[in-house]
Design a protein around this nucleic acid. Structure first.
Lengths: 138, 138
DNA sequence: TGCTCATGTTTACAAGTGTAAGCAATTACG
DNA sequence: CGTAATTGCTTACACTTGTAAACATGAGCA
């Protein structure tokens, strides 16, 4: 009885997966360009992060298992593709960060950054320009 | 040989302690008002978070051990006080969040929030007013 | 067809975290 | 003064996360 690469894609989750720090590095690569083979990802990360192949592969498996990646069998290997959008993940992280740190509002964060991380004149100008372009929702 | 409550305050760390999610809840209470006894904190959190006394006490101990809290013995109990400022912790979290999600810059975050979480006309006005008050550093 | 290489799977393991029971000692109360 | 209640300390345990070795199997080449 032969055994093709097993499709282990998650239960079905597609919305809002929790991505850990290490996993994030892999997702970034795939958000930037997909699909990719594990080989590509491994070689990119063996340098940048000094991870062993096994480490990268484990993370790919975990991401697939939790539904953050889709895999398409190709011979005995997979092509990996993000199953969640970067902006959705960022939105989730942002939401929880704002809630926890600043009661969910943006203003206090901006005030905080201005005070503690400092903004240049140029930053301020850019932000103002940005605000002018935003169309108010709600 | 009698045994007074042991002073287990951290090595000396005072700057930049990593505070976990659960611990954060305790710190909030102490940043809001300090010093407090464990009793106070326990009763506040038994409701809000449905934590058992033991849980709260463990977290207090961990926070003390890592230098996030100072303790002042009082009979057989302690008075707990934050050893780190909230704004310093927030600053650290903010820095790492901005780095990871938005390359360290504020503008993309604001843009993101505008798009994904939406801002009211009033929010935008407030932000503009805020920017006008900021004195550019650097 | 046999062997080596690449690739995914299983197992591992330490540190960190959430959550808490149980013990010891001290204080408070009858 | 003796007993109950309070409070901190020790220990525990499962789950997550970072990091990876060992293993099995299919693919490609000799």
């Amino acid at each position: 009885m032969s055994k093709k690469p097993v499709q282990r894609t998650a239960p079905k989750a597609q919305e809002s997966v929790a991505i850990t720090d290490a996993e994030w590095d892999i997702m970034e690569l795939l958000w930037e360009k997909a699909p990719r083979t594990s080989q590509e990802i491994v070689s990119l990360l063996e340098e940048g992060r000094e991870w062993k192949r096994a480490t990268v592969v484990t993370l790919l498996a975990r991401l697939t298992a939790k539904g953050a990646l889709n895999t398409e069998p190709q011979g005995n290997r997979f092509l990996y593709t993000p199953a969640v959008e970067r902006s959705a993940c960022v939105a989730e992280e942002t939401r929880s960060f704002l809630d926890r740190m600043f009661g969910g509002a943006l203003q206090p964060l901006v005030a905080h950054v201005a005070e503690h991380h400092s903004l240049s004149k140029k930053d301020i100008a850019e932000l103002k320009a940005l605000l002018d372009q935003i169309k108010p929702n709600s």
